[in-house]
């Protein structure tokens, strides 16, 4: 009926851009226009990124020397040594705790826990990841500084940082194990492997790269946090010699020195140098994470396809 009305093979149908008008024409013009419009959002977002890196570098690099890394801040002078040391120790404690708790919990959630328990654990993990860092900070301050009578200690800072990092390690471990193709398990068990052997010899090696990326990711987040440690690790300009002392750390340097009067401008420079160093470390970790996941992805690609 409708087709017959015009008859195929007679005049050319209106298929060209030029042949349409009104509503259809507006639709086509809009479709041409919007791919140029939407990516403008990238300018809005990436401009701050570059501006930030540029300014931080500009304020930090001219005075950045080896001494910045090796000297301890004294008065208005010196370098970041004690803060770098403190950050390293804090992140080491944090990573140890987060890896221990996170991987163990992730392992059990993925492999052993009954379904409702696993679901509940995952929900709790996700909520824990959403707890504001400052709430963790208050928690740490009340429990590990006041209640224990430790006062400000590196250990307390490390523990709170560990709790902050835990959910990321936990969820990636769980995810990595649950996304191992089920055929692998069936094949292993069919060949007579015990569940434990399957986990250690097969599932874990497959999951390891994802777990590692999770750990590095958690480290990057932990490195940049100030809120959980400012009121647990306290502050001390001298390099630490033990875990039960307060310590300084890179993010703390920024928090303490950002708002000083101009007369104390050298400390502001130190804050920018700390910021510069943090950006470098975080970018480095990001690159590692990318390389790791690219490399392992290629190696494991066959498995996931």
């Amino acid at each position: 009926m409708t087709a017959g009305a015009e008859g195929l093979g007679e005049e050319a149908p209106a298929l060209t851009y030029a042949s349409v008008s009104g509503r259809t024409r507006r639709r086509l013009i809009f479709d041409r226009f919007i791919p140029w419009l939407l990516p403008l959002a990238f300018v809005v977002v990436l401009f701050p990124l570059f501006d930030m890196i540029f300014w931080v570098a500009q304020k930090a690099v001219p005075t950045f020397t080896l001494a910045t890394l090796t000297e301890t801040q004294v008065g208005f002078g010196g370098g970041l040594y004690s803060m770098i040391l403190g950050t390293l120790v804090l992140i080491a404690i944090g990573t140890a705790i987060a890896t221990g708790i996170g991987m163990a919990a992730g392992f059990y959630t993925a492999e052993y826990a009954p379904r409702p328990v696993a679901t509940f654990g995952r929900l709790a993990g996700n909520i824990l990841a959403g707890v504001p860092a400052i709430v963790l900070g208050y928690f740490g301050y009340y429990l590990l500084v006041l209640y224990t009578n430790w006062g400000f200690t590196t250990l307390a800072g490390g523990i709170v940082l560990g709790i902050f990092m835990t959910p990321y390690v936990y969820r990636t471990t769980d995810l990595a194990l649950t996304s191992v193709p089920p055929t692998q398990r069936e094949a292993a068990l069919a060949m007579g492997a015990r569940p434990r052997q399957y986990l250690l010899r097969i599932a874990f090696p497959i999951a390891l790269p994802t777990v590692l990326t999770g750990i590095f990711f958690a480290m990057a987040l932990g490195l940049g946090e100030a809120a959980p440690i400012v009121y647990t690790a306290g502050w001390s300009s001298t390099p630490i010699t033990g875990l039960m002392q307060p310590t300084s750390f890179l993010t703390g340097a920024i928090w303490l020195f950002y708002d000083l009067p101009p007369s104390e401008g050298t400390l502001l420079t130190l804050a920018f140098q700390a910021a510069f160093l943090l950006i470098l470390i975080v970018l480095g970790l990001n690159v590692i994470v990318q390389l790791l996941s690219d490399r392992f992805r290629r190696r494991l690609q066959g498995l996931f396809e």
Binding site: L49, D51, M52, W55, V56, K59, A220, L223, G224, E225, A226, T251, I254, W255, Y258, D259, L268, A271, F272, A275, L278, I279, V282, L283, L285, N286
Partner: peptide, 14 residues
């Protein structure tokens, strides 16, 4: 990945 203190000091100073 950029730490929130870095956002903060950039916002405050620049």
């Amino acid at each position: 990945g950029i730490p929130s203190v870095v956002y903060g000091i950039w916002g405050f100073v620049i």
